[in-house]
Simulated assay, not measured.
Amino acid sequence: MYIRPAHAVLEPETLRSFIKSNPLGILTTAISHPDMPFLQSSHIPFLIDAPTSPSDPSDLGSLRGHIAAANPQAKALVAAARAAPGASPDAGTLAQEVLVLFTSPTQSYVTPSLYVQTKPATGKVVPTWDYMAVQAYGRVTVHHSAATEEGTRAWLQRAVCDLTEHAEREVARKEEGEAWEVADAPKAFVDVLKRAIVGVEIKLTRLEGRWKVGQELSEGDRQGVVDGMRALGTSVGEAMANVVEEKGKKDR
């Protein structure tokens, strides 16, 4: 990802916090397979685990999620995992990196008309698009054969329970309701569904973030963006105004 220095966000804890708040990632793989596309992407909700060695700067944590076994991307992943050196009957780790892209729902077109300082002074302004995104790279371990391997069944059970608990906690807080648990569904039903998914565990090797929210602007132009976005009277405009305003305060 191209990141201008003004937009770079490189603090691992900030990036992990972003992923926790925006867990739906786009998993992209590049795997040679005789019957599947080389490049494939799927939207997958991920849980991010903290580093096991917090004092080690190279330990960025890991991502856990699952993908439908019927998905062509899952089939390519499983085939590559089975052929990987040191693979076990139910799991294997690919040598090449995979990429997961996480984005914030707060994103918007920004018209040059909002640059109230530079536009009247020089006219040297053009439109742009503001957004926030994190790219996570790592090596993926594929957990498959859930119908026969106790290790994979246990891994998948823990993964789906942890992800559900994380997501339900936020829903229950907002709705003031009771959180749903995997154990609320019949065990036999859950076991059948687990046979239809493949687990993906990604040991992170690189985290990169770009917050493109007006950091390069003068204070007058930035305030123009904040005021203009609020004047739209939309939830997106209000959210964008808040992000640009907050980032401006932090950078002062």
Results as ranks from 00 to 15, higher is better:
Leu99Glu: 12
Val125Gln: 03
Glu165Val: 08
Leu94Gly: 08
Glu165Leu: 11
Val190Asn: 01
Pro186Arg: 01
Phe189Tyr: 13
Asp191Leu: 05
Arg153Gln: 14
Gln157His: 12
Gly123Met: 04
Ala79Tyr: 07
Pro186Leu: 01
Ala183Gln: 12
Glu178Trp: 00
Arg82Asn: 09
Leu101Gly: 01
Val126Lys: 13
Pro89Trp: 06
Glu168Gly: 01
Arg173Cys: 00
Thr164Cys: 13
Arg173Trp: 00
Met132Leu: 11
Ala80Glu: 02
Ile197Thr: 06
Ser88Thr: 15
Arg82Met: 09
Ser104Tyr: 01
Phe189Pro: 00
Val198Tyr: 06
Leu77Lys: 02
Thr103Glu: 13
Glu149Asn: 12
Val182Glu: 07
Ser145Tyr: 05
Thr152Ile: 08
Ala91Gln: 14
Ala133His: 06
Leu114Tyr: 14
Ala91Thr: 12
Glu178Arg: 13
Val200Thr: 11
Ala81Thr: 03
Arg173Thr: 10
Gln73Trp: 03
Ser113Lys: 14
Leu193Ile: 04
Asp130Val: 03
Gly151Ala: 06
Ala172Pro: 08
Ala179Glu: 06
Ala146Gln: 10
Gly123Val: 01
Glu97Asn: 14
Glu97Cys: 07
Thr111Asp: 01
Asp90Gly: 14
Leu114Asn: 03
Ala84Asn: 02
Gly199Ile: 03
Pro186Gly: 04
Ser108Lys: 10
Thr128Phe: 03
Ala179Met: 02
Val198Thr: 09
Glu176Lys: 13
Gly92His: 08
Asp162Thr: 09
Val190Trp: 05
Leu101Met: 13
Pro89His: 07
Val190Ile: 12
Thr164Ser: 12
Val100Ala: 08
Val98Met: 10
Leu94Lys: 03
Pro72Lys: 04
Tyr131Phe: 15
Val100Tyr: 00
Lys124Trp: 03
Val171Ile: 15
Gln73Asn: 05
Leu156Gly: 08
Ala188Cys: 00
Leu99Thr: 15
Ala87Lys: 12
Leu163Arg: 09
Thr118His: 06
Val200Asp: 10
Glu170Cys: 00
Arg82Gly: 08
Glu175Lys: 13
Arg173Ser: 11
Val140Trp: 02
His144Lys: 04
Glu176Asp: 06
Glu168Leu: 05
Ala185Arg: 04
